[in-house]
Design a protein around this nucleic acid. Structure first.
Lengths: 135, 135
DNA sequence: TAGACGATTCATGAATCGTGCAACTGTTGA
DNA sequence: TCAACAGTTGCACGATTCATGAATCGTCTA
């Protein structure tokens, strides 16, 4: 199916198809996925995640490593944990955090890789668009 | 390297290691990755992305399919485009949008899959935590 | 070139988010 | 049990973000 050939007159006909495509993902899953992305969509939290790629860390270690206040780190970890990006376990008087699973690690690596490819394009694209529309 | 065996007295020694881990990802890439996640971290925009998985769509079609105002859709598409999640091209008087590349499609599928696994855990975990700390 | 249509931009107000600090909870070891 | 330490939570403030509708822009066609 080559949607590129569809003309504006087909809009109504296509409508049902579109609605189906939109509904193909359960609303709950969509919401959860958005929450997942949102949790990762903050530089501070993302930095935390990249550190956690190397293994388990207690909150104090993380605070020292990132040079931030302990409550701040704890807050961020809570967000990440609520959305299932990290998990924690207690070891003595320390609470150790780590990435929730390989899925998260893969997602993380993939996004960073993608970002590195697109970093230079971002602003250039924005300016080009301002100057003269599409292409 | 088993970081799980590290005790609190090792914090200083470990510090250098942590700092290296944090710096392993260039600040720019981290920022871009966060922006990427942030762009996907909204239910409305995410829904838009899931629709775009099926191919190219013009703004009007998307607006009708999702039953939203055209400017609203356009705004969301702009965010997604700025962060490199979607690309566009003009075809006649229509502007066709699609996912930027396979990378994005894969990331999207992966996140939704992960979300579906963790949907039930999220709130239960939150409550469990309130009730009695770790585990 | 004028009109129509598709798409984008802009300004506004409501809502949400992130942070910093203080108070609090919970665990360990004496 | 008590003191010290590790971590969490609550609250308030400033900054972002999002939806909305009007105005504008760009392209095609008559």
């Amino acid at each position: 199916m080559n949607r590129a050939t569809v003309e504006s007159t087909d809009v109504i006909e296509v409508h049902a198809h579109e609605a189906r495509a939109a509904a193909s993902v359960p609303a709950e899953a969509l919401e959860a996925a958005a929450a997942f992305f949102r949790a990762a969509g903050d530089v501070s939290r993302l930095r935390l995640l990249t550190v956690l790629r190397s293994g388990e860390w207690c909150v104090t270690e993380l605070a020292q490593a990132l040079d931030e206040a302990l409550p701040t780190i704890s807050q961020r970890l809570k967000v990440l944990r609520t959305e299932g990006l990290v998990s924690r376990r207690r070891r003595g008087k320390h609470v150790l955090y780590s990435l929730a699973d390989e899925h998260v690690a893969a997602l993380l690596a993939s996004a960073i890789e993608h970002a590195q490819e697109h970093v230079p394009r971002r602003h250039a694209q924005e300016r080009a668009h301002r100057d003269g529309g599409v292409r």
